[in-house]
Design a protein around this nucleic acid. Structure first.
Length: 760
RNA sequence: GCCGCUGUAGCUCAGUGGUAGAGCGCACCCUUGGUAAGGGUGAGGUCAAGGGUUCAAAUCCCUUCAGCGGCUCCA
């Protein structure tokens, strides 16, 4: 009979199997009332779980001992809220098929297939929430029951919900794999996906497997759902909930599969917790780089220029310029050579590198060469035809190109019309022939250009490593729905470099790269990042090169990551197509993750471009390449930086470092002197000669998050002093001699101090 | 690209079929004020673009463009 060990180490003995709820009751009425679920030997379970053997038990309640919200409780509440929401939606929209509804870190969702004639709109939210409120008020118990696999599957098949049948089969497969793994010691055995014949697959698992269902109330009478659980004891225990948003999603995350509607919601133990969360979200939204970027005029995106193309305004350009200077200093220390290369290159170059075939759909269309364009248009004998038409043979003006493309689109439109009418859809008709396309590509990556610089001269092993760095601007046709302020754009500048070295030099060079990334993050006080080692996915064929080299490259990355001394995760499938990488990933204010710095080991591009150096044996050898970008791109990095500092940048980065505020026009003369002294010292300073009162000038400057304000009036003029007000201080720092302030801020800027250092 | 939402003055937003609004900002005037906005006057809008319904459209419908939240993708 069970002996239950509680979190404090105390033990309780029972003469017969007991439920976790009974144990809670035996400890105290208060605990029993607050209990939402339990953990048995560390595993989250229903409160009704029957305990029939010795175990460790903890009762899950909404708050932990230190009065924080318990993540396990929130998991139970959100998982349960997802069921309640699904029931409410099915009441309102008959025919809605449930797919999958898990809890997340701070919300939950349910993927649902809605009838085509009845899509869900956000206008439906109030009705759904009202229905949910009813279900919660009814306080129906979540009742778990298990049925034999064949019975459960049969039922789901009757319901004709292929999604749930699929879920059930996956659950059964997982059980089967679990058993097999237990017997053979094999873990992570691949589970087959994607077959439509789930009925057939399912029968392999029927023997002794079970499926669990949860009824919201009485099985057979109330709403129920195939579900692993666990759940809170009853619907009434879902304290507060809210439906948040709608999204489209794909079945199995596969864009070629069914499109589903994802309904997001969140739930908390109490209304107060929900309100706090909603308020926090609103607060976070205020430091969104798009909001601050607009308020502080840091960047602009203009429809007329194009989606995802950043216009750096003067203020934002200061940020970028300072970062470039900063990294430039570090490059000199580490023996890099700076290079410059053009924004375009021949299409063939990217065919060789592999970028064009791999990312064809994610690039701006090629800029065709005149002859290729003629061919695409079906013009015979291009040179002759051009001459006959009186067009210049050696080039193609913009106007001429437009004229020709107009002709092409007209022809394409005509062909499409013809095709639609004739109902003869086939790939052999309208498709412009890719083979004929030749010309230039806006560069999607800098590596091919740098490779060509490396290859332009012979190299001895004595020259290596060669480190070529460039603030290289690249262009990628990111999907329109992916674009996001500065963090996901179509044109961006990487602080890119490519290191060409011997295989022996790889570890040390990797360390150098990683230390650069760390220097960057430390200087900017950005400590909240995670490190991801991106490895190849053994099941995928998207990677180029041979497995031996991949293994070596992956091992090098692993060792380098270890040397960082911070936790990292290894993630298969996250490698680049040519090699594994070490990424530094940060979160934005909304919780989305962005890759910033990256270091990549590449055995493959040197092969594709047939790069060599001469070894000590006087024989040609293959170098290894390292790609690295400590910031990633200036656009994304600045976006994240804006949010990190909420616009309150360290002085060295601030677009405006000091503002002089004369008390009245009487002090304008002295204010000009102060401004002059600041400028001579190299500070980015302005003076507010407006006729606002000093309070007004301070408010305006404070909203602009300027680090230092110098208030100057007759008293200061007399003593050649300034009254200093530092950003974020409630009061001023008092008066100090002008010279002393100038010296202090100069040193603060030179040392790239992350906080404000001028003291009274 | 997919689903939902949104688009009104430089910015933030109100306006839901009947003459286009507010606050901030901007210009000018008064005020010369010592630490988070003193007062007044004025300029500023093809209501994202195009089409439709209507006697009448910022408002209703359709298309396109762009932004936002997700999905998918991310060299």
């Amino acid at each position: 009979m069970p002996t239950i060990t509680l979190p404090d180490g105390s033990q309780k003995h029972f003469e017969h199997p007991v439920s976790a709820a009974d144990v809670a009751k035996s400890i105290g009425a208060g605990l029993a009332k607050a209990a939402l679920g339990c953990k048995v030997d560390g595993e989250l379970r229903d409160l009704s779980t029957l305990l029939d053997k010795d175990c460790r038990l903890s009762i899950v309640t909404p708050t932990t001992r230190d009065k924080k919200q318990d993540p396990d409780a929130l998991f139970l509440i959100r998982h349960s809220a997802a069921h309640v929401m699904a029931e409410a939606i099915q009441r309102i929209i008959p025919g809605a098929q449930l797919v999958y509804g898990p809890p997340l870190e701070d919300k939950f969702y349910y993927d649902i297939k809605f009838p085509d004639n009845r899509p869900l709109k956000d206008g439906d939210f109030p009705a759904i929430e009202a229905e949910m409120a009813k279900i919660v008020a009814e306080d129906r118990p979540f009742t778990r029951y298990e049925v034999a696999a064949d019975q459960g599957l049969g039922r789901l098949l009757e319901e004709k919900n292929k999604y749930k049948v699929d879920n059930a089969v996956r659950a059964l497969e997982a059980q089967a794999v679990g058993c097999a793994a237990a017997m053979t010691g094999v873990v992570n055995a691949p589970v087959s996906h994607g077959t439509n014949r789930v009925e057939e697959r399912s029968f392999r698992y029927l023997s002794d497997s079970t499926l669990s269902f949860y009824a919201t109330g009485t099985p057979g009478q109330n709403w129920e759902d195939l579900c692993r659980g666990p759940h809170v004891p009853s619907t009434g225990r879902i304290g507060a909930f809210k439906i948040l948003s709608l999204a489209s999603s794909y079945w199995h995350g596969d864009e070629k599969s069914d499109r589903l509607t994802r309904v997001y919601g969140t739930a908390f133990a109490s209304k107060a917790d929900l309100d706090t969360w909603l308020t926090q979200r609103e607060e976070a939204a205020k430091r969104d780089h798009r909001v601050i970027g607009k308020a502080l005029r840091l960047f602009h995106i203009d429809e007329d220029v194009g989606q995802g193309l950043i216009l750096w305004t003067p203020a934002g350009s200061v940020l970028r310029q300072e970062l470039m200077r900063f990294i430039g200093d570090e490059l000199n220390k580490q023996g890099y050579h700076q290079v410059f290369t053009p924004h375009i290159g021949k299409l063939d170059l990217y065919k060789t590198s592999g970028h064009f075939p791999y990312y064809k759909d994610a690039q701006y269309p090629p800029i065709p060469e005149r002859d290729a364009l003629d061919l695409a248009m079906g013009v015979e004998g291009t040179q002759a035809a051009a001459l006959a038409a009186g067009l210049p043979a050696g080039g193609c003006s913009c106007a001429e190109l437009m004229h020709r493309l107009d002709g092409v689109s007209a022809r394409l439109a005509a062909q499409v019309n013809e095709r639609t009418q004739a109902q003869t859809i086939g790939p052999d008709r309208v498709q412009p022939d890719e083979q004929l396309l030749d010309g230039y590509l806006l560069k999607p990556m800098n590596c091919p250009h740098h490779i060509k610089i490396f290859a332009s001269a012979p190299h001895s092993y004595r020259d290596l490593p060669v480190r070529l760095a460039e603030f290289g601007t690249v262009y990628r046709w990111e999907q329109s729905g992916e674009l996001n302020g500065m963090t996901r754009v179509r044109g961006f500048t990487q602080d890119d470099a490519h290191l060409f070295c011997t295989e022996d030099q790889v570890p040390e060079e990797l360390l150098g790269c990683l230390s650069l990334v760390k220097t960057v993050l430390t200087t900017l006080n950005m400590t909240d990042y995670r490190v991801r080692v991106g490895l190849r996915d053994p099941d995928s064929n998207k990677y180029t090169g041979n497995p031996e080299n991949w293994d070596r490259a992956e091992q090098a990355c692993r060792l380098a990551a270890k040397s960082l001394g911070v936790p990292f995760t290894e993630e298969p499938g996250e490698a680049a197509f040519y090699g594994p990488k070490i990424d530094f990933v940060v979160r934005d204010v909304i919780g989305r993750e962005w890759q910033l710095g990256t270091v990549q080991v590449d055995y493959n591009l040197p092969i594709r471009f047939d790069l060599t150096y001469t070894g000590p044996d006087n024989q040609p050898h293959r170098p290894v390449m390292i790609h690295r970008a400590p910031f990633g791109s200036f656009e994304r990095f600045c976006g994240v930086l804006i949010e990190h500092f909420a616009g309150s940048f360290p002085t060295w980065l601030s677009p405006e470092q000091v503002r002089v505020l004369p008390i009245s026009e009487k002090s304008d003369g002295y204010a000009k002197e102060v401004l002059g002294a600041l400028k001579v010292a190299g500070c980015r300073a302005t003076c507010d000669f407006g006729n606002d009162r000093i309070q007004g000038k301070i408010k305006v400057a404070a909203d602009l998050k300027i680090p230092y304000l110098l208030i100057v009036g007759p008293r200061d003029a007399e003593q050649r002093s300034v009254s200093v007000r530092a950003r974020g201080q409630e009061k001023d720092l008092g008066s100090m001699p002008l010279d002393r302030f100038v010296e202090a801020i100069k040193s603060e800027i030179e040392t790239r101090r992350a906080d404000l250092g001028v003291k009274p």
